[in-house]
Simulated scan of single mutants.
Amino acid sequence: MSIDYALIGEGMKQAVPWVGTNGVQFEHVSGEKVVAVLPDAAPQHNHVGGPHAAMIFGIGETASGAVVMAAFAEQLGRAVPLVANAEIRYKKVALGDLRAEAVLGRAAEEVIAELDAGQRPEFPVHVTISNAEGVTTTELTVVWTLRPNR
């Protein structure tokens, strides 16, 4: 079965209302990496004029979820992807459009092998968030699990 990665971004907008209502755009989607952009919007600002921390986390978690959906699309009939935990590191004040690059932290084949063995695998997705000038403002690690359907 061939996966149409272009549909992942549109599917995210349908399945997760926040993604569709906040203007998230997907520049690149594959089973190893996703690049998502959150355009700057004044109603989403914080007290220093940049995106609120919730928006920064939101674009990072969204990009991580998209790479999980792309990497494990063929497994979604038998397991549900869920966030197990996340750690965020704010490095610099974020201003303007945000670009989140999410990279799968383990080989998909290893994760699927654990699922095949009846386990509930966990795996990290590493996200780097940068501003329009390409300066890293935030780093995020989201640990996902694939919970087998009952």
Rank of each mutant, 00 (worst) to 15 (best):
L82P: 11
S2C: 06
V34N: 02
E133I: 02
A73Q: 09
V142Y: 03
P121Q: 06
V24T: 07
A63W: 01
G77F: 09
A63D: 05
E133M: 00
R78I: 08
A42H: 12
V103H: 05
E139A: 15
A36Q: 05
W18A: 10
A79L: 02
H126Q: 09
R147T: 01
L146I: 03
E101K: 09
P17S: 09
E133V: 05
T62C: 14
A100V: 10
L140I: 14
A6C: 08
A117D: 10
T137D: 06
A71C: 11
V135S: 13
V142C: 03
I3C: 07
E32V: 04
E27M: 14
A41K: 15
I8S: 03
A132Y: 04
V37G: 10
G23E: 12
V67F: 00
G23R: 09
V127K: 00
L38I: 12
A102E: 02
R150A: 13
E122Q: 13
G9D: 01
V68Y: 02
S2N: 07
A113H: 02
G118Y: 02
A94E: 13
G77P: 15
N46I: 10
N85V: 14
V24D: 05
P121M: 04
A70D: 03
Q75V: 00
P17R: 04
T145I: 12
M69D: 00
T145Q: 08
V127A: 03
L38F: 11
S130A: 15
V111G: 05
T141S: 06
N131Q: 07
A6R: 03
H52V: 11
I88W: 03
E101P: 07
T62R: 14
G65A: 06
P148Y: 00
G20P: 14
L115T: 15
Q14D: 10
V127E: 02
V24W: 04
L115C: 15
